[in-house]
Design a protein around this nucleic acid. Structure first.
Length: 318
DNA sequence: AGAAGGGGCCGCCAAT
DNA sequence: ACATTGGCGGCCCCTT
């Protein structure tokens, strides 16, 4: 059993709380995980806390929850210019010193930084706040490029939705990709999306209706990963010229078709690495790579490890 | 490991 | 006047 404590603040947005509840707060008896999480929503004040949108929240516990948590999650603070109370800072420091995993979402990085937990460490935050975070806490190495960053005991994530990616990543670390993918499927989100926030800066809101056409072609392509898929073939499936297809594809997804394909192939390889003992060569060709060499190359780019190291870490035969 | 060949990406622009 | 399309070409990165 693993206790997760998530902090709630007066004036917070309910979404980030919801993300954490979805991933850690729901029972998942269908998943065949040897253990699951126990979630506590806690707050400094006894509440009721006001949430953006007008609802009120009565937290289940106080800061004492941080003293028994294995993972502490700090969502975005409503006030990026303010300073957390001494009590909160002390509770966070104690938890960290005890060995608890400390996690922030969006502007929650400000709270961690104020507690000194990010000194000398790399940290992700929402791109709008990156400069402010740098200025207020020069000891923090702000990285505005990544969706989330794993610094071992301290993990930070960018905008609110990147909190989903980070929470799924934690599940992957704890239970392996197969379980994490199952949770992702239940939430109907991508099990893993690659790095950058740049795509969202360029296209903050998903554009128009032909999103749908692109999505259908993506789905079609996912079923044919093992085949030799070319961009012209995908364009033909979408009934578009190659030029229009690549243009719409980028607008809808933030990447190019080929890049997306490669990422999908890597993602498809994860469960094979985890729960089979197929040689790397076979895994590579099964998910559509022409050679093990290029598989290793793209695997490293996306996952920042080698396939065999990944298998050793997350494989069922661990 | 490193180089050559080829497909993919995207800025540019004329045409619609 | 303005937006969208799709061919072209050169650079880039993937593959071999």
């Amino acid at each position: 059993m693993h206790r997760v404590a998530v902090l709630a603040f007066d004036g917070m947005a309910p979404f980030e709380l919801g993300v954490v509840v979805e991933v850690f707060g729901l029972a998942r008896p269908e998943l065949a995980a040897p253990w699951w999480y126990e979630l506590e929503i806690c707050a400094e004040a006894e509440g009721p806390l006001r949430l953006v949108g007008g609802a009120q929240l009565v937290p289940g516990s106080g800061l004492d929850a941080l003293a028994r948590a294995d993972t502490v999650i700090v969502p975005g603070t409503p006030d990026v210019h303010g300073t957390p109370s001494d009590a909160l800072i002390a509770a966070l420091r104690t938890a960290a010193a005890r060995g608890a995993r400390i996690v922030s979402i969006c502007s929650g990085a400000f709270t961690l930084a104020a507690a000194g937990l990010l000194d000398g460490k790399q940290a992700a935050t929402h791109w709008q706040y990156a400069d402010l975070l740098r200025r207020r806490f020069p000891a923090v190495r702000v990285n505005a490029e990544q969706l989330y960053l794993d610094q071992g005991a301290v993990l930070t994530s960018a905008g609110s939705a990147a909190g989903i990616d980070l929470c799924l990543y934690l599940v992957r670390r704890d239970h392996g990709a197969e379980i994490a993918n199952a949770v992702a499927r239940r939430l109907v989100v991508a099990p893993h999306r690659d790095g950058g926030q740049a795509q969202f800066i360029e296209a903050p809101v998903a554009p128009d209706v032909d999103q749908h056409a692109i999505a259908r072609t993506m789905e079609w392509a996912c079923g044919l990963l093992a085949e030799r898929l070319t961009v012209p073939a995908m364009a033909a499936h979408a009934h578009m010229s190659v030029r229009t297809f690549t243009r719409r594809f980028r607008a809808a997804s933030g990447t190019s078709p080929k890049q997306w394909l490669l990422d999908q192939r890597v993602a498809a390889a994860l469960p094979l690495l985890e729960s089979s003992e197929l040689p790397i060569e076979i895994v590579a060709s099964t998910v559509g790579f022409e050679s093990a060499v290029s598989f290793r190359q793209h695997f490293a780019r996306v996952m920042r490890t080698t396939p065999s190291r990944y298998r050793r870490e997350f494989g069922i035969m661990r």
